[in-house]
Every structure is written in C-alpha cells, then in structure tokens.
Design a protein around this nucleic acid. Structure first.
Lengths: 120, 120
DNA sequence: TATTATGTATAAGAATCTTATGTATATTTG
DNA sequence: CAAATATACATAAGATTCTTATACATAATA
C-alpha cells in the first residue's frame, strides 16, 4: 500500500514553528484532533505547508506530557479520534508563544527589509 | 577563561532561519566576516537575536561547501578575518530564500492572525 | 593583571523534522 | 467489486539545525 502523498518538502524555515501553530489553532478552535490540524493548516496556507504525521504526533504527545494539552478520545464512524485542547497552563503559554512569534516576525522583517534611515 | 556571554537562549522559532539571514546580510553588505555578522544581527534585532558561534561558523562553512559563498582571508590588527561574499549561484539562491521567507511569514500570519471573512 | 572584546573553530548532545513504515476503517473510483 | 484514496493514529531511523561547552589567539580596557 504505497503512500501517494506528493511530499513536497517544507522550507527549513518552518522548523521550530509547529508547536506555536498547534497551540494557536487549539486556542482558536477549542479542540481539534491531529488529522484535522494537518488539514486545517493545509487549507489556511493554501497547500504551502504540509504538516507530516511524523512531526505532528510526537509534537502533540510532547505538549501533552508537558501539561500544555489535554486529550480526550472519541470514536466517530468506528474510527478513533484523539481530541486535544489547551490546559490552563497551555492557554497561558500560548500567549507567550504568540508574543514570541510576533517578535520573531518583526525581527526577521527588520533583517530582511531594513528601513532606510530617512527619505526625502 | 570563561565566556561571560549572558546566553539568553533564542526562541526555537529562529531554527532554520540562519542561512537566510546570512545570505541576506551578505547580499546587502557585499562582504562580511563571521563576528561582524553576529554583531550586525544583534544590533538590528536590538539584542533579541544572538547568533552563537557554534551555529554560525558551521553554517558559513556549509554554505561555502555548497558553492553559495566565497571566502577571502584578511589580517587586520594582527587578527584573522574571513570575509565571506555571495557567489553568483549564491546571489540567485538568495532571491529564492528571500521569497521563501516572505511566503513563510505570510503563512504564519495567516495561521496566527486569521482574517474575518467579512466585516461590517 | 585580570577581564572583556575581537576573531575563528570544533565536538557532544538536544531538539525538531523528514522519510519510511505499520495498523486500521471508510469511501470513492475504475 | 477490487483497488485506490481518504481518514486516523503511531513510531523508528536518520538528517538537519542549533545550544552548550570548549579551545586557541590577540587587542583593549578596567
């Protein structure tokens, strides 16, 4: 059974951003399951970012182990789903992560798009 | 001889962005040496991003090995400097990397700051 | 004279991700 | 209806990138 995923590989730039993405999506949507997260990200980025299972599931397990996520298992259509949601700690930490992301983006833009000192 | 660098550690988000930063700075400044790059980045980001030597020098060596950078050794004040500059290939690749960075930032903003469908 | 600044370098280990699998059920397509 | 695709989870091996800790050396400062 071949996996015909056309694995166009993500830019190295995404390395390190997965946890923040997961936490933000959970903050926004209350609870989500793994597969749903991959699809949501694909949709939002118009196919530009594809989260692989090999990255996603270990990340979810780690966030759970760190006490940032809670899990709740459901069975839908005879298929298992593991719904994740932010714990209270997770909610607080999400604020920090999003703040870090803003700083990061701002810094990257400063580096790449340096403002001319003055113009006229 | 202790290094008293107050190593406040960088956010994981920066992981994967170092090559792009180096190439952009070289595109902008023509040629730079390693230490100069660390200082420039520190200045531009107002101390928020500190590139460590352990990350920088291997990255420079790799970019050189990939044919994206050329190196030229100078001796200033009896101290060695290795000036790096983009090769022609490196210049072309820099355009791609910057384009990737723009896409990355755009995608992260879409994920984190989803637009309301319509507002009024 | 001891520390800090300048300057390069590498090695060990951590963290994150890709790639390749494995298992299982439901749905769609040829 | 059989095969492929979609849905849904999981892990292991290896690659890549980075942190941390060193190492060496000279110049400037406290």
């Amino acid at each position: 059974m071949p996996r015909n995923d056309k694995k166009m590989k993500n830019s190295q730039l995404y390395k390190g951003s997965l946890n923040t993405i997961i936490m933000k999506l959970l903050e926004e949507n209350g609870k989500m399951y793994g597969y749903e997260i991959t699809q949501k990200v694909k949709t939002i980025t118009q196919g530009e970012l594809n989260i692989t299972e090999g990255a996603l599931y270990p990340a979810l397990h780690k966030l759970e182990a760190e006490g940032l996520l809670d899990v709740e298992i459901e069975k839908v259509d005879n298929r298992m789903r593991k719904y994740y949601k932010l714990t209270e700690t997770g909610q607080k930490e999400t604020v920090n992560r999003l703040s870090e992301l803003e700083d990061f983006i701002r810094n990257m833009q400063s580096l790449v798009n340096p403002k001319p000192s003055l113009e006229f």
